[in-house]
Simulated scan of single mutants.
Amino acid sequence: MAKKILTVDDAASIRQMVAFTLKGAGYEVVEAVDGQDGLNKAKSGKFDLVLTDQNMPKMDGLTLIQSLRVLPQYRSTPILMLTTESSDDMKAKGRAAKATGWLVKPFDPAKLLEVVKKVIG
């Protein structure tokens, strides 16, 4: 059975590129348009991995991670940030929110797959 990944980004082009890359590698992908949409979709299903942007309307990525980490089914689920944010301060905030890892946009599809395979197989 394919591993299920939730990808959360307000940019349709990024969601499409991420989904295309992951589906091509055999993963099942569900897309969310912002953090609130991502949280709602995460609550309605169980995902093996969450990939989220930081800067989004309604709810940012760090708030999404914090909201997911309090839910029993997402306490240990890998959550990766995929964002243009690359400052040490922002990465420290990501670690504090219990993000599993950090990828900077624009992303290399091969690198994305390498990291995804590392965290969920």
Rank of each mutant, 00 (worst) to 15 (best):
M1K: 10
M1H: 06
A2G: 09
V8M: 07
V8T: 07
D9C: 00
D10T: 07
D10L: 12
D10K: 06
A11I: 15
A12Q: 14
A12W: 15
S13Y: 10
R15G: 03
M17N: 10
A19L: 11
F20C: 00
T21Q: 08
T21M: 06
L22S: 04
L22Q: 08
K23F: 05
A25K: 11
A25N: 06
G26C: 10
V29R: 05
V30G: 01
V30A: 11
V30R: 10
G35Q: 15
G35S: 09
Q36C: 01
D37S: 07
D37R: 10
L39W: 14
N40G: 04
K41S: 09
A42N: 10
A42F: 13
K43C: 00
S44H: 13
G45K: 15
K46R: 14
F47R: 05
D48Y: 09
D48H: 08
V50G: 02
V50P: 08
D53L: 03
N55F: 13
K58T: 08
M59P: 02
D60C: 00
L62Q: 03
L62M: 04
L62K: 00
L64S: 07
Q66G: 02
L68Q: 13
L68M: 08
R69S: 06
L71T: 04
L71P: 09
R75K: 15
S76H: 15
T77Y: 10
P78Y: 13
M81Y: 08
M81V: 15
L82H: 06
T83K: 00
E85P: 02
S87T: 15
D89T: 13
D89I: 12
M90P: 03
M90R: 00
K91R: 12
K91D: 06
K91F: 13
K93H: 08
R95M: 11
A96G: 08
A96C: 01
A96R: 07
A97C: 00
A97H: 05
A97L: 01
G101R: 04
W102A: 02
L103F: 06
V104G: 08
K105E: 10
F107C: 05
P109C: 03
E114F: 14
V115I: 15
K117M: 08
V119G: 01
I120Y: 02
G121E: 12
